[in-house]
Design a protein around this nucleic acid. Structure first.
Lengths: 196, 196
DNA sequence: TTCTTTAACTTAACAGTGTTAAAAATAATA
DNA sequence: TATTATTTTTAACACTGTTAAGTTAAAGAA
């Protein structure tokens, strides 16, 4: 019965890939059962054999997007000087990823979840994503006694919420009005939290 | 032609009131043309004689909600000692308002706006809402030389984004998990920004 | 190979949603 | 009162999600 699993996994993959394409392109509002199935090359009803519904499906994309974002962040920041500067670089790279793919920001932070309990692991992954991206660098700062543990926790927490807030204002309310202003604001805020 | 205006205003008011009831009760996802018209006592098509669509209508509620929130915040914080303590009290009261009415948070910060240009004044009102609630108190702090102007601006900005971020995490991702934990976190963050 | 059973997939249908044009009802005017 | 203008409703279309029934394809047995 190994075939079954392989086939099922393949089928799921077709639908997931279609969903990811739509999310990155047209965005979350364009995700629909019929839309996904069309792109995957199946009937809309077939999707229900592999996923509870389209909402369930989109959350299965979270892991892939996090992996993609992680790759990008790592490659963009590998030459950054270690410590606070690198944390800042990682954070800015993380911010730019979501600006490039607003649909993914929506999925991660905005999309309403009706069945919170079943998606708890996914939610946890989302909540801790930025922390995990920066963890190695925070550890380095702690080792080097550049920051006290409780201060580091505070700054991590601030960073998480300020970044989410800024992205929310920019992506849903176009505030600040231009991308340059937005980037300047983000840099200023991040720098201020990390301590100049 | 005065009658016309009065009648039109009255009709609009019926639809707006219905929309506000739905937003405060069932939330933004329950807002639909047919739903609103039902509550207002008219056919769904009638709504289009007074509003471009339901999205347009919900944004006409923003001002009323801001006025309601302002009243609540003022009454809840009038006994607070002036200065930073009052800014903190105002911010916490503001936060609690949105937790009580998650649908209003969605409307203010989450709901996608397709015609950004035409709703610019409304968006501006939303963006500056917390700042305006605290403005009098910031002015007081500046007068008393409790804070430098540029530092005050920085703190205002931080407050705006941290508060939005915390509310976003709590209202869409139930993080932190309990209301008490959420309130403690919010207080900690606000206090830290305002300087202990 | 051919028949039968099982699984996979698609079609059809229902109940929603937004939106518009035509029809009906109401109000205003001559 | 009869005609005209305005307002409101009904009907229709194109979407959405979701389920049950029908069809097709695959797997197993004789």
């Amino acid at each position: 019965m190994d075939k079954k699993e392989i086939q099922e996994k393949r089928m799921k993959e077709y639908f997931i890939q279609a969903t990811k394409d739509i999310l990155k392109g047209e965005g979350l509002k364009a995700v629909s059962v019929r839309n996904i199935a069309d792109k995957a090359g199946y009937s809309y009803a077939t999707l229900y054999n592999y996923f509870k519904d389209a909402k369930d499906l989109v959350f299965e994309c979270v892991k892939d997007f996090q992996e993609e974002c992680t790759m990008i962040v790592i490659s963009e920041t590998e030459k950054s000087p270690r410590g606070f500067q690198k944390i800042k670089a990682i954070t800015m790279s993380y911010i730019k990823y979501f600006v490039q793919y607003p649909g993914i920001f929506e999925l991660f932070f905005v999309e309403k979840i009706y069945d919170l309990a079943s998606k708890q692991p996914t939610i946890e992954m989302i909540n801790t994503f930025l922390d995990r991206l920066c963890q190695e660098e925070w550890d380095y700062c702690l080792e080097q006694h550049m920051v006290l543990p409780e201060v580091a926790e505070m700054k991590k927490s601030q960073l998480r919420y300020v970044v989410a807030g800024i992205l929310l204002f920019y992506l849903t309310r176009r505030n600040p009005h231009t991308y340059k202003e937005f980037l300047d604001l983000a840099e200023l805020q991040v720098s201020h939290i990390l301590g100049h």
